[in-house]
Write a protein that binds this DNA or RNA. Structure first.
Lengths: 242, 242
DNA sequence: CGGTTTTCATTTGTCTTACAATTAAATGTC
DNA sequence: GACATTTAATTGTAAGACAAATGAAAACCG
């Protein structure tokens, strides 16, 4: 635990960085116990509240977890895909909402990334993935589904599509892109007609994946990207006027 | 700021969640000032150290920033691409290193995502992106470059390639994938021969991007993916034996 | 001796109080 | 009016105390 990598900032930041580096560089391994707060305070020559602030920073990034009681303490946490997902979605959502990212840019990024998956998905999909996709398509066809429900189902469909590529790293990366788009998508009012078009395209994608036909799946996805973009831009334009 | 969404966890976690929700849901806007620590302590009926722990959690996620002095305080932070990048790279790196992700899986994900960019890059690249790519290729051709230097240059080359697509959301997403791979790539010892092959492929990609030839660029990238995979698997296999 | 209960030491969680450091605004001075 | 000084607000840090949780060890009991 080296000290003082950034002497400008406050103590808890520096301590957090120092411990983080130890974890990232592998000097501390998963499930290894950190010294107690009192001991850390002594080692870094700071008070316990300051150490605690540092530990909370690390906990916020899921780098450590803490347990109370005797033989408790702070432990290096194995970062699970689920935790990483959660963090990525929060970050990506904020990034989009705070930086005035245009619908077109977000849409393009999302479908570009998703396009990277469909070829793999066509090659590797299993019955389960296909069933999940079909189930969402069925939901989307129900006319009593709310717009929010339709969007949620859309996300679920695309997640199933991504998972069909059977690469957890890809799934993790795409989760951020797909889910972060949801707030933007929720702004769209889906008419019966647009829902029909989307369901038709989803069906084409699912059929192509089932047939292990990567080219057709890619083409349908691209068509969907174009259609989504058109819908979204209409909404954004209308939103500007008043 | 609603209270008590998760009554199980400790106070600072709950308070952090409550404020985070207010930010994510847009009830607090960028650069808006949070109440002072003393006031927050009063509102949540907790002590100031507890409030501070909550604020440190949020600061660790770049959701807020703090300024000292009169009229200072905690402010909702505009999440910049740079900050989001940094977080994503840390998360992705830890995810790979802690979860025994195979070289093949990581490699596949990386090149699949990157493939999503080349077509756009071919269409949109500007002189600057091309110059950056060429500069890295030139570096990579120098025989006195260390293996770490070669890897770093490789990352820089691919970052330039991704940036050529001129979609900041894509760049953000890809940063995680490309940079998180670097520790794995650093394990590879690049022989003069393999360096030559990689430089040749990089050159083919740059040439194709310059010629706005997406198909050739994609093909070269796929070849590079295959070659990298072969190199990596050789290393991983050799590492298993002893 | 075996199982159960109790005690106990350790550690995190929280509160209280206090002071130092910083900073912008208000005030005073020339 | 320009510049120096004071002041009030706010975060940063410290020290000490107690509560709560928890597993280990000790004590107890059958």
């Amino acid at each position: 635990m080296k000290t003082d990598p950034t002497p400008r900032r406050d103590l808890s930041t520096r301590i957090a960085h120092s411990i983080r580096d130890a974890i990232v560089e592998g000097r501390m391994i998963v499930d290894e116990r950190l010294p107690s707060e009192a001991e850390l305070a002594e080692r870094f020559a700071v008070s316990r509240p300051t150490v605690r602030e540092a530990l909370k920073r690390l906990a916020a990034q899921s780098l450590i977890r803490t347990e109370r009681g005797a033989f408790g303490g702070a432990f290096v946490n194995r970062l699970s895909y689920a935790e990483a997902h959660g963090q990525q979605i929060t970050t990506a959502t904020l990034l989009l909402s705070m930086n005035a990212v245009s619908f077109a840019t977000a849409c393009e990024a999302r479908y570009a990334l998703e396009g990277a998956c469909v070829a793999l998905a066509a090659a590797r999909r299993e019955a389960g993935h296909l069933a999940a996709m079909r189930a969402e398509i069925a939901r989307q066809a129900r006319p009593d589904l709310s717009d929010e429900g339709f969007c949620a189902s859309d996300v679920a469909f695309h997640r199933a599509l991504v998972n069909a590529a059977r690469n957890p790293v890809l799934s993790y990366q795409l989760a951020g892109a797909v889910e972060a788009m949801q707030p933007l998508m929720n702004m769209i009012t889906f008419t019966a007609r647009s829902r029909g078009a989307i369901v038709a395209l989803h069906t084409r994608i699912a059929d192509a994946i089932e047939a292990r036909d990567a080219a057709t799946a890619t083409a349908a996805l691209e068509e969907l990207a174009g259609y989504t973009l058109t819908l979204g831009q209409g909404v954004m334009a209308a939103r500007k006027k008043p």
